[in-house]
Design a protein around this nucleic acid. Structure first.
Lengths: 258, 258
DNA sequence: ATACCGTACCGTACAGCGTACGGCTCGGTT
DNA sequence: AACCGAGCCGTACGCTGTACGGTACGGTAT
């Protein structure tokens, strides 16, 4: 439901862990790496809720408190999980810029890869306090995603803004999709089923007199999506609008440097 | 850090509560309304983490379990908090469409109002499982925000998509801002201070050889924002691009119906 | 006036969480 | 052979949401 207290992860400690070599297996085979991998597996199999220090330790057949020898706390563990997940994104740092279709094709590729990442690791969207800790894979991601924007005439700050805009759009729609899936799983009801079972209540309540447009548009969208919303459609629709908007900016800059 | 279990709020029960009249004060003065208001006050003063059933009850000088007479559980309470917060948005259902500047001016107004809402109620961005439960204020919000889009030539589904795109952009940037503020508060360090204190570590780590663009652009953005990111700038920049993109769509539809 | 009863209220208890603290037990060095 | 630091972990504390069962009161029927 909400964020937990935890002890909020010391950023400097996280940085050291992220970039450290930590290759000494200890006498029970426990490693930072093995802990992080176990946590990610757990998150993907049973959701982020299941990732408690106790469960992670159980999966590794180790006492709960042993984890604290390798990881300062849960906050830092989550930081490590995130950077590890980013490692799935690109085979090499030029993957996006190799894409056809210029900067637009590259950004579409970037959006698709990030969307897939979230689809494969929905737990990433359940994290409330996302300290953007710059791990090695996050850095590579940033470099890889910026490269296709160089040479478009955009300033450095504009390149950053453009990328952030695309990424935040993907994250939003992915979060919507993950929420939808989670709710459906919890309630055991399809979105369409829910709609049918709650339509009578809604009809009585939201009379078309007070909210004519909301009724009409809501119904149109509901019929089109067979649901209250279609995140995949929102991703495509929004990305197109955003890229169109960016194209305007790029053309403007292009004219300044003919 | 992550989502909690809770019992996931029965949607039908939430709907009934949201639209119900619940005006019977009971013998200790406890009402659904008073509970929700206390919870919101608590969330704004001490953050969403502080909103536990025990704390809410304490603030109302009531036994913890008494809350459950009026509210089925914490999930439903959060639903009620959200719809109540939406009540702050518009004085009446035509506030956005009264705005000058056509649909574009109206959407800018909508974005600004939602941004302000999140700035005043940052706890709304800490909620992980946002079941979009259609309360009365949420419905009015939807109606009000759709109205300026009618007559632009967009289809009903397109109107919904356009609105969702703008709202999700505002939510993303507001979340970034709230996260930034929360981290700063927890660490007691300005973003700029953090940057200074961690720059030496980062320099050693992220050598400009491997990530030349990331280094250059990151530094440029850091200098421009005096921080790792500037959500207010991201809001304005992104909104402009998005509205430009929507303008293209609207013009296209306009030509179809001359 | 009396008896009754539904509902509001709430004390206790349970399972789960992150983690502080202190002790045990090894592997490697002297 | 003695030592010691580091890895490991059992216990305990304070926090969470809420199931359950009991109490006490306001309003109604007799």
């Amino acid at each position: 439901m909400s964020a937990k207290k935890a002890s909020a992860a010391d950023p400097a400690r996280s940085l050291a862990l992220l970039w450290g070599s930590h290759s000494k297996p200890g006498r029970s085979g426990l490693t930072v790496r093995s802990i992080v991998l176990a946590a990610i597996e757990l998150a993907n199999e049973e959701g982020l809720d299941a990732v408690s220090m106790r469960h992670v330790a159980e999966r590794l057949e180790v006492g709960t408190m042993s984890l604290y020898t390798h990881v300062p706390g849960k906050g830092e563990l989550v930081d490590l999980m995130i950077d590890t997940a980013y490692g799935e994104l690109y085979d090499d740092v030029d993957a996006p810029s190799r894409q056809p279709g210029g900067w637009r094709g590259a950004l579409e590729f970037v959006a698709a890869r990030n969307w897939d990442l979230y689809r494969r690791n929905p737990w990433m969207l359940q994290i409330v306090d996302v300290r953007s800790t710059l791990g090695p894979n996050a850095s590579l991601k940033y470099e890889a995603e910026l490269r296709p924007l160089e040479g478009t005439g955009l300033s450095d700050v504009e390149m950053d803004s453009v990328l952030a805009l695309v990424l935040s759009h993907v994250e939003s729609t992915a979060r919507a999709k993950a929420n939808q899936a989670r709710i459906q799983e919890e309630s055991g009801m399809t979105d369409a089923e829910w709609w049918v079972s709650n339509a009578p209540i809604l009809d009585k309540i939201m009379d078309a007199g007070r909210f004519p447009l909301a009724s009409r548009v809501g119904q149109a969208a509901g019929e089109a999506y067979q649901s209250i919303a279609d995140p995949a459609h929102a991703l495509a629709f929004g990305l197109e609008r955003i890229l169109d908007g960016i194209a305007g900016l790029v053309e403007g800059r292009g004219r300044n440097r003919p």
